[in-house]
Amino acid sequence: MSDERPSSRNPGKKTFLERLGDAFTGEPKDREDLLAIIQEAHQNKILDDDSLRIIHGAMNVSDLHVRDIMIPRSQMACLEHDESVKQWATKVVESGHSRFPVLGESPDEVVGVLLAKDMLALTLKHDFNEEAMQRHVKEIIRNVTFVPESKRVNVLLRDFRMNRNHMAIVVDEYRGISGLVTIEDVLEEIVGEIEDEHDDETITNISSTGNGSYVVQALTPIDDFNDHFATDFSDEEFDTIGGIVMHHFGRVPKRDDTIQIGALEVRVTTADNRRVRSFEVRFVS
């Protein structure tokens, strides 16, 4: 009697991994060769569109730095250490985020991170007694992690996993606050945009910086942009202002690349090697 177990699957049908392995019969010599093999596997229906996008995203992550994917400082939702718990709760509810930098005496001093779930636990523990909660609020502020703008995203992801951390404050070469980055920002570079039930409510496509300029999300509809800035960009060829800006650049611009379009000066604030996320826009005389 044979000791071999009968196969539970169709012997004539290859698994996904076996079919993928067949695509790599020729060993790739470099990254370009590997990408060509992956593209051929996609064309041969071995990889579907989603799988192809994820593989490309995973490979591109090693080329990115934190500055390419971070949330700019002007868009950070922060709490201040001298605010009341009630003020914190209001900001938490309005933003819909789960983690918040807590600022100290100055905007460049981040003293910790508050998790919304910790504040909820504190509220329940003290039966919504604000005076009691205020006495114990420092106990729930967690330590903050700082990372430089130049840190590679793949290294950041490894650190997030090892330290079981989900958010870090990004600092520039002078230790000033540049923005923040979350593990979701990293994962979105691999799998694409991850939207939750709060995204449509909390994202402001156009927000003032307070110094005469505005932060504009690349996905802002052209009609909304025209209404806000009294411009007359056409929406026949592009649906979003990001398409208009990239058309004028003639390429995918990098962070801090600047261009003048009519009476507007547009500076890229957030971008990676595949797309632009946001711009700083101001009128020039």
Results as ranks from 00 to 15, higher is better:
R277F: 10
E4H: 06
A230C: 05
A263Y: 05
R152V: 01
F100V: 13
V137D: 00
K117M: 12
R67A: 14
V137W: 02
I46H: 04
G176M: 04
L157H: 05
H56Q: 15
D199E: 15
I183W: 01
E188A: 13
T15F: 02
N211C: 08
M1K: 12
R5L: 12
I169G: 10
A230L: 13
R255G: 01
V147R: 06
K14V: 00
H65Q: 12
T209P: 01
R31H: 08
A116V: 12
A36Y: 03
V215L: 14
V111D: 10
L34G: 10
H42P: 00
L103V: 15
H81G: 00
H56F: 09
F233H: 11
G179I: 11
I38Y: 01
T258Y: 05
S208V: 05
V170D: 14
F128E: 06
M59A: 01
D196H: 11
R53F: 08
R267I: 13
H56R: 14
I46M: 06
A263T: 06
L79R: 04
K254P: 00
R275D: 06
P6S: 14
V191P: 06
E27F: 07
A23G: 14
I69Y: 08
D256Y: 07
K151I: 01
F279P: 05
V281H: 03
S2E: 12
A41N: 02
G250H: 09
F100T: 05
A116W: 01
R161M: 06
V252H: 02
T258C: 14
V171P: 08
L219W: 04
F233K: 07
E197D: 15
N10Q: 00
I140K: 07
L20E: 09
I141E: 02
E18F: 02
N129E: 14
F249I: 12
P11R: 03
L156H: 09
H126N: 14
D223C: 02
E173M: 06
F283W: 15
E4A: 11
D49F: 05
P253A: 07
L34S: 05
T220K: 10
H228C: 04
D127R: 14
E236V: 14
E130Q: 06
D48E: 07
S8L: 10
G104R: 15
A89K: 11
D30A: 04
T240K: 13
I69E: 10
P72I: 15
H198V: 05
S95A: 10
S84I: 04
